[in-house]
């Protein structure tokens, strides 16, 4: 006897069995396209995309400067640098954690790049690789303490926020490092096919991250751990390994952003990346990620990052003082989460 017979024998009490031999109704092509279109429209990200588009349209009418090459290049670079960090933050938030140390990691890597490339005179490529490794170690420490000692990631990375920033300030005595070779600065300031290099890098990273999260076993494991850690453990998933890997991803992406930022500004500075953690968390949360883990995605985070930075740009173009920007950002973050909760509650 097979399992199927056993169950059908009881009369299929639960969940109504599909009668055998009835093929699923064939859908017309048009119907299928309409179905797909409907899926896209009702997706979590679509309303956010709508807001971003409306904002872009509004800005291109409200300010003559918005749609200029100069402004778009600046905004594009800013979005790219923030997006790289936000992508890493999304990984951490998906497992139900938080990484407050990304801003400090940017500073540490910025300083480290300067020391290796300018002070020690290493070849640019080698210096960049070593700085990336150094930054990734921050994540290894975060993840190991979180996974093995069991201290909540909020506390671990809060400590690391201070430690990494302190290292950056301590090793430089608080001063900046300049004198980078032109080849390195091209990373942050150059363009390819008219589009800034950081934008290319951010796009590649975002696509790769999206692919990892949606198509690989590792991506699945991240959602499992975030959705129910105990069940993940009892499904044979090595929860600790996943946690450590995720914190390393977050730190390494913060490092990439730190290197690009250094190249963009031509200085290694210990004050770099101040407050980036809040921007990244805000972007992920606006994009629909749940701080309890298990819910979220790269598309949402990308839209969230764009929204936050476009609004910043808008306030500048409309001549509103920079001091007020934070008020707007804060209100938008809370409003977006409230909207998400309301949508979820309705379903």
């Amino acid at each position: 006897m097979t399992i199927k017979e056993a169950v059908v024998g009881t009369g299929g009490t639960a969940g109504g069995t599909v009668p055998n031999g009835t093929p699923p109704a064939r859908q017309g092509v048009g119907q299928r396209i309409r179905g797909q279109a409907w899926k896209v429209l009702t997706a979590r990200e679509s309303s956010l995309a709508g807001v971003v588009i409306v904002l872009v349209i509004f800005l291109s009418f409200a300010s003559p400067y918005f749609m200029t090459v100069g402004n778009l290049t600046v905004v594009g670079r800013q979005i790219a640098l923030a997006l790289i960090i936000s992508v890493g933050m999304t990984f951490v938030i998906l497992i139900g954690g938080i990484d407050l140390s990304v801003g400090s990691t940017v500073a540490l890597v910025s300083v480290l790049t300067g020391q290796l490339m300018v002070t020690s005179g290493l070849p640019p490529a080698l210096a960049v690789i070593l700085a990336l490794i150094g930054g990734t170690l921050v994540g290894l420490v975060n993840g190991t303490i979180n996974a093995f000692v069991g201290i909540p990631s909020f506390v671990v990375t809060l400590g690391m926020l201070a430690v990494a920033r302190g290292l950056a300030l301590g090793t430089t005595g608080g001063s900046t490092i300049s004198g980078f070779p032109a080849a390195f600065l091209y990373l942050g300031q150059g363009s390819f096919l008219g589009i800034p290099i950081p934008v290319w890098i951010a796009v590649v990273i975002a696509f790769a991250a999206h692919f990892v999260l949606t198509r690989t076993t590792f991506g699945r494991h991240i959602y499992f751990v975030g959705s129910n850690e105990e069940a993940a453990k009892l499904s044979g998933i090595r929860v600790r390994r996943v946690k450590i890997a995720v914190f390393m991803i977050s730190a390494s992406l913060a490092s990439v952003s730190g290197i690009l930022e250094t190249a963009r500004l031509s200085v290694g500075q210990p004050a770099a990346g101040n407050g980036y953690e809040l921007l990244a968390i805000g972007a992920a949360v606006i994009g629909g990620a749940s701080l309890f883990g298990g819910v979220g995605g790269i598309l949402g985070t990308a839209l969230g990052t764009s929204l936050l930075l476009l609004i910043q740009n808008a306030l500048i173009l409309l001549g509103i003082s920079a001091y007020w920007q934070q008020v707007f950002s804060g209100v938008i973050i809370v409003a977006a989460v409230a909207l998400n909760m309301w949508r979820r509650g309705r379903r």
Partner: peptide, 21 residues
């Protein structure tokens, strides 16, 4: 609910969660 299911994820993802390889 506490130890077995990933409540927020789809039935498909729940079923294959221990058989991904």
């Amino acid at each position: 609910k506490q130890q077995g299911l990933f409540l927020g994820l789809s039935v498909r993802e729940n079923i294959s969660s221990a058989s991904l390889p």
